[in-house]
Structure formats: structure tokens, C-alpha cells
Amino acid sequence: MPIIVNLDVMMARRKMSLNELSEKVDITLANLSILKTGKAKAIRFSTLEAICNALDCQPGDLLEFSKE
């Protein structure tokens, strides 16, 4: 998919584990894993807002467009 999710990069920058993020944003580990591995088909604004809040970043830091 041309949209790349850089969640793992941001988590590494903030030194935050998936478990920790899961607790902070109140999203199951399974769903966060779907997002992290790029399997997700869509992301809700509420989820994006919660992740941006937890990682103290902008949506553009998490999502990237690539022409492949």
C-alpha cells in the first residue's frame, strides 16, 4: 500500500513499547499490531488523535505517502 505507517519509528523515538502505548491510547494490542504491521485498511480520527497525543507527534509523523 502506498501509505506507510511509521508507528514503530515514532515508538522507537519515544522509547515506548507496544504494551505501554496500548494502555495509554486504550486500543487492544491486536489492533495496534495491525496498524504497526501496515495491515490496517483505515484509521479513525479518534485513534489517530489518541496516538498523536500519546507519542506527542503530528499525524504526518505517523503516516507517509510513497509512490512505490
Binding site: 489492533n31 495496534l32 496498524l35 495491515k39 490496517a40 485498511k41 484509521i43 479513525r44
Partner: peptide
């Protein structure tokens, strides 16, 4: 359904 399941 698939899309719904893969919406985070």
C-alpha cells in the same frame, strides 16, 4: 466486514 475488521 474485512474493511471494518481492519479499521483501527
Amino acid at each position: 466486514q474485512n474493511e471494518n475488521e481492519l479499521t483501527v
